[in-house]
Design a protein around this nucleic acid. Structure first.
Lengths: 212, 212
DNA sequence: CCGGATCCGGGTTGATACTG
DNA sequence: CAGTATCAACCCGGATCCGG
């Protein structure tokens, strides 16, 4: 990207992360941790492969990520955020919070990959019963699994299956998201194609943050 | 800007503010308040005039700003941030903080307009003597003036001349900034072309934030 | 001078094909 | 799997022009 040539923090940061796709690549690495080229490509539907390669080069040069060779047996290159790259989480959180009103309406043609639940779960969901014992649920869409946990008043989320989940939501991610935000109720969700196994009451532990 | 087509807060926000120059226009409006087209152009050195016009249209359509006609006598159009546009201050602050390490070294070919001091002053400077009475200084570069105030442990900043300043720094903005950050001392700054009127001790009230 | 509109060359992006 | 190559379409930058 061409520099703005302005001695200003905002302009300097945009010089580095203002290119198209760059912040989305950081998002993927924040959510999934060290990732291979192909995993990044899958997590970024629509990205031209040459741009992904270009960006990864630029971002390595800018000190946002490192390209690591994983240990001997499987010689796969993985991309890993540096601390400097991880520090962009605050920026992504600010953008995510600003965009909250745009996520109320359900997606239309938008792609919604299950693992993207991780960031909004952290940003927009709250634990509605902080005093009660922790609750863990799994969201499953095809073979993708995401684990959400409500404990001590906080919601955490990560990619991967849950260990002994209290409930499992199975079906299209957009529906699961609507259900967690309490935009639709369980009966409606089931009619629309969602299955819930385990204790549906566990879902009530999650809800939208109060309007800021 | 073409949409990413992803149901994700980050992607949605970038759909709106990811275009080149857009966030810098927000910066100008945050710093200067309601501004005319020409003022924006001056505050954004390097922007092609057609792009500024395009962006202002896009941003109005996106609900980030309004175009207001000022009252009858001087029929000047001014651009004003909507609350939605003002809410981007948190995003700009996050980007500014992330960029802090990039602003330690002095600018080279970079442009440094005086009014840009306002944001970094708020973000990077601290009041070193919260208990003492407030201190107000003016930074003057050619005919541009910026007012900084340290009071009750906080630093505030705005465009315009200061009322009864305790000190006035006159000269190139980059030098003034270095001085405020305590990167250079007063003697060095004077030798490099900076003049300080009033009580130079007032400058000691300002200093860099401790390393986060 | 203010507030743009128009035009054009070059760089970036998007889509797809191809390769070690 | 992990990219490179190619090419069209689009966006950006720079310059010029124009009506109040």
């Amino acid at each position: 990207m061409r520099s703005y040539g302005q001695f200003c923090g905002l302009a300097k940061s945009l010089d580095i992360i203002g290119d198209r796709w760059t912040l989305l690549i950081v998002r993927e690495l924040l959510i999934r941790g060290p990732s291979r080229y192909t995993d990044l490509r899958i997590g970024l539907p629509g990205i031209p492969t040459n741009l992904l390669a270009d960006r990864l080069r630029d971002m390595e040069e800018a000190g946002l990520l490192r390209r690591d060779m994983s240990p001997a047996p499987a010689a796969a290159a993985v991309y890993v955020l540096t601390p400097r790259g991880e520090a962009l989480e605050t920026v992504i959180a600010a953008l995510g919070r600003w965009a909250a009103p745009l996520l109320e309406a359900p997606a239309k043609d938008d792609v919604f990959l299950p693992h993207w639940l991780v960031l909004p779960a952290r940003l927009y969901l709250t634990d509605r019963a902080p005093r009660k014992p922790p609750v863990r649920i799994e969201v499953r869409d095809r073979d993708q699994r995401v684990t959400l946990e409500a404990a001590n008043g906080r919601v955490t989320a990560r990619v991967g299956p849950a260990d002994k989940p209290d409930a499992v939501i199975i079906g299209p991610t957009p529906l699961a998201w609507q259900l967690l935000l309490a935009k639709i109720d369980l009966a409606h969700a089931r009619k629309a194609g969602l299955a819930v196994e385990g204790k549906p009451a566990a879902l009530k532990r999650f809800g939208p943050l109060p309007r800021q």
